[in-house]
């Protein structure tokens, strides 16, 4: 089996405070893998190591090895890392000064890969369809994003991430601020993206139910460490660690 992400003894500290305390983790390629755990367990930090968004934080120290599709991300050009593994954030954050259309294609535009207007339009349509937003916005691509509802904005962010044609999609609690209907839409979109495009999805969630509904594999984190991981069914039905059991019962 080949892996989208491999982490060995990953340690991250911010101003001497250790956030991740020796992470060993493998995410199989082509799967949806969920990372769950209570608030403050280091899930978001771990996710931001993968696309090196962590570099932006002041006073951060990273040690250990992290490979994405077999290549060490520390040896790669940081911009290539980020294009290969695009991210959807907790709060919907479409660029407020750009139209819906520009939000989707901005990544392709700055990378300069696509030149013609026609290709750009096709990319926008493809990404918006994959994010299950096309039907709702096709007549108003020039509108600013604040005309959309929160759930639509989040799907727009998903389209923006997809338009980079990433091999890996990183999601940081993408439905934490979204209503149930939009949550299910996003989950359906993610299932299709995995199935039809073969994109590996690595998502942080603090809702066990979401991991159960969506993920092939689930990893449980607690206090900066991986407590256990494996096929989601095993984790859900037969958790080995006390903290996982308590998390699934909603106690931590």
């Amino acid at each position: 089996m080949s892996y989208a992400i491999e982490m060995e003894n990953l340690r991250v500290s911010i101003f001497e405070k250790e956030i991740l305390k020796g992470i060993n983790l493998k995410v199989p390629e082509g799967t949806i893998t969920a990372l769950m755990g209570p608030s403050g367990s280091g899930k978001t930090t771990l996710l931001r190591v993968v696309n090196r968004l962590i570099d932006l934080i002041e006073g951060v120290k990273v040690s250990g090895t992290v490979k994405v599709f077999g290549k060490s991300i520390m040896d790669m050009d940081v911009y290539d890392v980020r294009r290969m593994s695009s991210m959807v954030f907790q709060m919907p954050n479409p660029f407020p000064h750009m139209s819906i259309y520009d939000n989707v294609v901005i990544g392709a535009r700055i990378n300069g890969v696509i030149k013609s207007k026609k290709e750009m339009d096709e990319l926008a349509k493809w990404a918006l369809e994959k994010a299950m937003l096309w039907d709702e916005v096709k007549g108003r691509l020039k509108d600013p994003p604040w005309r959309l509802s929160g759930g639509q904005q989040q799907r727009l962010c998903l389209a923006r991430a997809l338009a980079l044609k990433p091999r890996l999609l990183l999601l940081d609690e993408p439905t934490a601020n979204i209503d149930p209907v939009n949550t299910l839409k996003i989950e359906e979109a993610l299932r299709n993206i995995r199935k039809e495009e073969g994109i590996t999805i690595f998502m942080v969630t603090h809702m066990p139910q979401q991991a159960i509904r969506l993920a092939d594999y689930t990893v449980m984190m607690y206090d900066g460490k991986v407590v256990e991981g494996g096929p989601t069914e095993e984790i859900a039905i037969n958790p080995k660690h006390e903290v996982t059991k308590r998390f699934l019962r909603g106690e931590v």
């Binding site: 696309n51 968004l53 932006l56 911009y79 290539d80 980020r82 294009r83 695009s86 991210m87 954030f89 709060m91 954050n93 660029f95 407020p96 000064h97 750009m98 901005i106 990544g107 700055i110 990378n111 962010c157 923006r160 991430a161 980079l164």
Partner: peptide, 24 residues
Amino acid sequence: TYIEAAYGIGMKRAQVIYMVTMGV
């Protein structure tokens, strides 16, 4: 969050400043 999103799609620093920060 907009600045993070901009870096997240592979923008270089100057692009983030010019296209996102100054734009917003």
